[in-house]
Write a protein that binds this DNA or RNA. Structure first.
Lengths: 109, 109
DNA sequence: TGACAGTATAACTATATAGTTATATGCTGA
DNA sequence: TCAGCATATAACTATATAGTTATACTGTCA
């Protein structure tokens, strides 16, 4: 077990902020969709079955957090993943959740 | 790069829920404090400089999510870390945030 | 049994934000 | 220059929740 030095309250604020951005299902859907490659706002909107303004707002939050990047080509704006570490995060969480449910299932053993 | 099969909306809801629980600075403080070992509610309350009811509420959320566990001894209740993966999550986020700020600093190069 | 300590819960307020609708902005081609 | 499309933004509503205050619960000890 690695030993951790305690983080400052300011650092914890930033970490919490990152988790907050990841704490919305639609944003996770967007990130998952972008894992296939960059995509326009319109395409993302259709993929996640939401509205264009809502998706634009989510994309702005993701960009501010440095998770996606923007590229404009004529009229169209393409977004792409800018931080692959989010997929490691999701994998970790998935593993942990699976374990949690397995453990809870044994309560009824 | 590992290839990911896309997750169902229900799974994404659960993942988002995990991130949501981690998206509060006080809860991160609590988890960080508990990394030193199990602790009573009173001690945690002092450590994170909050109020007892507030800490109790946070602890309940953390327990529901399976991140901490409870042990009662007489009048006193001790909480402890129940899922070490949260520290890997925090490490990943810290690394990513650091990288993000480094990259942004080069804008002014 | 009563008084007290530790913890949990209820009720409330304030704040943040997801989603919506309407509109603005900016690019392209006729 | 105008029409039309893609995206962004503004304003609003509804909802969720962090924190607070008051109180209930539970166990210990005298």
């Amino acid at each position: 077990m690695k030993d951790h030095q305690s983080m400052s309250p300011e650092a914890l604020e930033l970490v919490a902020g990152r988790f907050k951005v990841l704490a919305e299902p639609v944003r996770l859907q967007i990130l998952q969709y972008l894992e296939n490659g960059e995509s326009s706002v319109t395409a993302i909107t259709q993929a996640v079955k939401s509205t264009q303004p809502n998706v634009s707002k989510h994309l702005k939050l993701l960009q501010d957090e440095g998770l996606v990047a923007r590229r404009q080509e004529g009229n169209t704006v393409y977004y792409r993943i800018a931080d692959e570490s989010i997929f490691e995060l999701c994998d970790l969480v998935c593993g942990s959740l699976k374990q949690k449910f397995i453990e809870r299932s044994t309560i009824f053993a």
